[in-house]
């Protein structure tokens, strides 16, 4: 009994760290992009101020019950993913509620938030959100395909669906990482990561010049605050997922921060020098190279 409460408390502490790291990471990324353009960029504490401001707006209007539930579902998706992902390998408390089949659950939770957003954006009624969300769902479906193939490939490789066990199998030196033992799956997953993080060239969901600004067009005040909170958590969590699956996990917080930063940086790095795809081009791209790599990754291990 004590143990579970203690575990819950540590999970909440983990969530708090992840949230703050996510906010800081997004600020650092924006600063890096700004520096490439020759600007100073936002102060590193800007995301916190933005959040405070959004949560303390005096008014908020609603378009209906699903409009409320959209951000809640989205946050549910993010926190749900967080709950079942082991953060620190070997730590008794920061493994959260990881269990033997958590890999499948997490793949499901990735979609869950998207669907919640679709419901909320639909209720918002703005055509830009509807176009954005239909683009988002179409793209996310194809992003999931190489991702799932890569996951199946490493599930076959390690003969397990538990993330903790996958991390355990990668311990003992850098050459044990999936990156080196299964480079094809890693390649497929890292390409699909670009789509999951939705930086250019796959930033067509929010596409400010085309459909400003996609699904969250009507979201404001604390609704937007919830969405931004979730984004911060989600970015770290997805990076942690990839870190666990392909880059040997983390044995301490410093390693987690460094690795998740580098994984997130990969998508920003690509994004800063590429323009945006159109939705059909994006879908076609994911169904070409990453898909083939993913299939190859499975064939090799069967």
């Amino acid at each position: 009994m004590d143990n579970i409460i203690l575990k819950l408390l540590f999970t909440l502490l983990g969530l708090f760290i992840v949230l703050n790291w996510g906010l800081l990471m997004s600020a650092i990324m924006q600063k890096i992009v700004a520096r490439v353009a020759g600007r100073h960029g936002i102060p590193f504490y800007q995301p916190w101020i933005d959040l405070i401001k959004l949560y303390t707006k005096r008014t908020a209007i609603t378009h209906g019950i699903m409009f409320y539930l959209g951000p809640v579902f989205r946050l549910g998706g993010g926190v749900g993913m967080f709950l079942f992902i082991p953060l620190i390998y070997g730590s008794e408390y920061f493994t959260n509620f990881s269990w033997s089949g958590d890999l499948i659950l997490i793949l499901y939770f990735q979609f869950f938030g998207m669907l919640g957003m679709a419901l909320g954006a639909g209720e918002g009624g703005h055509p830009n959100s509807v176009i954005g969300i239909s683009r988002g769902l179409a793209q996310f479906t194809t992003v999931e395909v190489p991702m799932t193939l890569a996951v199946i490939s490493i599930a076959v490789q390690y003969q397990t669906l538990s993330i903790t066990e996958i991390v355990a199998a990668q311990q003992g030196g850098i050459l044990n990482w999936t990156l080196f033992t299964n480079p094809l799956a890693t390649a497929a997953a890292m390409l699909s990561l670009l789509g999951a993080f939705r930086h250019a060239p796959f930033n067509l969901v929010k596409a400010p010049n085309e459909i400003p600004i996609g699904p969250p067009t009507e979201y404001h005040s604390s609704f937007l605050g919830v969405l931004r909170t979730n984004n911060a958590i989600l970015h770290v969590i997805e990076a942690v997922l990839f870190m666990n699956l392909f880059f040997g996990g983390a044995t301490n917080w410093f390693e987690l921060i460094l690795k998740s930063f580098l994984i997130y940086f990969w998508s920003v790095f690509v994004g800063v020098v590429f323009p945006r795809f159109r939705i059909e081009q994006s879908v076609a791209w994911f169904l070409k190279v990453p898909l083939v790599i993913g299939i190859l990754a499975i064939i090799i291990f069967i």
């Binding site: 490439v36 353009a37 020759g38 010049n209 020098v273 323009p275």
Partner: peptide, 16 residues
Amino acid sequence: QASTLSLGLGGQWGMY
């Protein structure tokens, strides 16, 4: 023209 496709980098340099 590239900024319209969200490649804003050239636009930022050009603006300077």
